[in-house]
Amino acid sequence: MTVQDSTATLLKSTSAHHSPSTYYHSMAEADTVISVRNFSLWYSKKRALTNVTIDFPRNQITALIGPSGCGKSTLLRAINRMNDLIKGVRTEGNILIDGNDIYAKGVDPVEVRRRIGMVFQKPNPFPRSIRENILFGAKINGYKGDYDQLVEECLRRAALWDEVKDDLNKSGLALSGGQQQRLCIARAIAVAPEVILMDEPCSALDPISTLRIEELMRDLAKQYTILVVTHNMQQASRVADNVAFMLSDDVTTGMLVEYGPTSEVFTNPKSKRTEDYITGRFG
């Protein structure tokens, strides 16, 4: 029986070794880029975010999911202070980027926005040449390097170079939807941001273009920290390392319900409400 016993022990120990939790990378170990601390936001009298506290780890993709009106886009736009452009916006709490509070007095949202790039729901290239699209951000921010080199590098990183290298002077609007969105990504990385915010970047694209963008996101995550708002659960499960589920209910608007590694959230969510949402039994 000794052989069997030791085999059993061996089996036990290997199964313990392969227990799922060891497959999940630990978020606690990762270095935090953005730290949202007890953050609330109001549009005039209407509250949009309630005491959100969440840390986004460096060089990972975090997906923000949740039903419409749950505050996920608001949270995204709070991180580069795009919400400031809307009249009557009021905030409480802090958002720290590399430990510095971007809502502290004296912080210029213009500088915040250079460090936190953004890609929008509908591809919105400037009605100018591909080259000018990429160079605009660099020029206004006083880029001193070689322009041609920058254009090529950004387009390569956005996996667009091979498709457009022969007509950089063509209008950005002449590209297909998927190419336009990649151009917008190239444009965003031209100002060397640390973080790229993506607000439903594929919702206006066909499935193949969507997959190309997702592929690109995985690639970019090696250098940038990416936050993506998506309504597409499959997309979140495909691209994201971590998933944050947000929700508004009768009492609280815009709260964080669950946050964890993608594999955990999609196989075994802790919250019943997350479960109901991702399995499509919401309401």
Partner: peptide, 24 residues
């Protein structure tokens, strides 16, 4: 969306008007 794109790149309000809003 054009204004948003420009502002999100770290352009100031005047840069946005000068380079994008007025030409458009």
């Amino acid at each position: 969306s054009i204004r948003d794109a420009s502002l999100a790149l770290g352009a100031t309000k005047w840069q946005t008007i000068r380079h994008h809003v007025l030409p458009y």
